[in-house]
Amino acid sequence: DVAEQLTPVLLSDPREESLQLVSKLKDSSSSCAVDVSTVWWEAAGSRELSVVTACESSVSLWKPLASDCWAKVYTWQLGEIPVIQIVALPDACNLVCIALGDLEIGEIRLLFYSSENDSFKQSLVKTGNIKAVLGLKDRRLVSSSRTVQEQQVEVLSLSETGRSKDGQTLMAPEETVLAFAEVEDMRDALVGTTVVNSIVIWNVKTGQLLKKMHVGYPYPASICHRAYADSGLLFVVLSHPHAKESESCGNPAFRVIAFNPKTARSTGVMFSSLPPGHSGRQYLEGDVKDTSAAAVLTSGAIAVWDLQLGHCTALLPPGPDGSWALTRWATSSACLLAGQRDGTVCLYRY
């Protein structure tokens, strides 16, 4: 594996200066932030990139004002089941999904604005023992769910007000799917990572499972974040939340692997290690957009990497108010969202 022979290149002093604080959102009514995301929202004829924040019992929509300030537009109150994550639909406008559950996702809801009633609404999209969910382009949602006997992998189409009748069941692999990634610029291609470290490729249009390929890495349960095809190869960006430091690999947070889907052979292209001084267990959660990755480390800092260079390019230390809990890219990697447990969300220009 080429990646494991490379010496990780790290900036000796990744600085906070490459992240410039633009604005700060503080939800005074939120006691425990669980996720943050961005969504396109149209109001009075203009489409704006808005911010969605979630705490356990409610989800709020924020719109931009002048001077980098933000105003809360609406708060959806949820029921007794806690919100676990926001599921953004990449190119949708005026709607966003959320996953709710206790230890695992038990239901997915759509939050939207109804112009008919001139009101904000919510509708139930799916229930079950849901292991993974991802919003796809063209208002589609893919999820893997388990019953005692079998796994179901399903792509749902969403209308502006809820689940539509069009859906596609995908052929499920034997092992549980943990994460999905759309293959960029290939509308019908979808990949997933499984609990035994396989990459699977589906044809979403036909539902066929096209290939299962082993990641070839000793750490289990890799998570796929991004996939793109180039020159007959499939490149997949993976993270390894459960990896431990080793002499041969360093302390890998993210890896880019090239697969030949025809032969299922693979080779490591680049890997991105933790910044110096961050050893042992590595990070809690992360996000990838374009060639940039960001993750919250167990130290409470946020690290940002350039995945093409394998460099850590910025490090945001824990603030005076406490550790960082969340980090997400906005619709482009030019803007990073960073959240603290008390509901404060900071927007950084990167």
Binding site: M171, M186, Q208, K211, S231, G232, P261, S266
Partner: peptide, 23 residues
């Protein structure tokens, strides 16, 4: 990545695998 490491590469891998895979 060289072809020898990864085996023969096809630019049409998605269409070819779709034609080969069970429906």
């Amino acid at each position: 990545c060289s072809e020898s490491d990864l085996g023969p590469i096809s630019l049409n891998w998605f269409e070819e695998l779709s034609a080969e895979a069970p429906p």
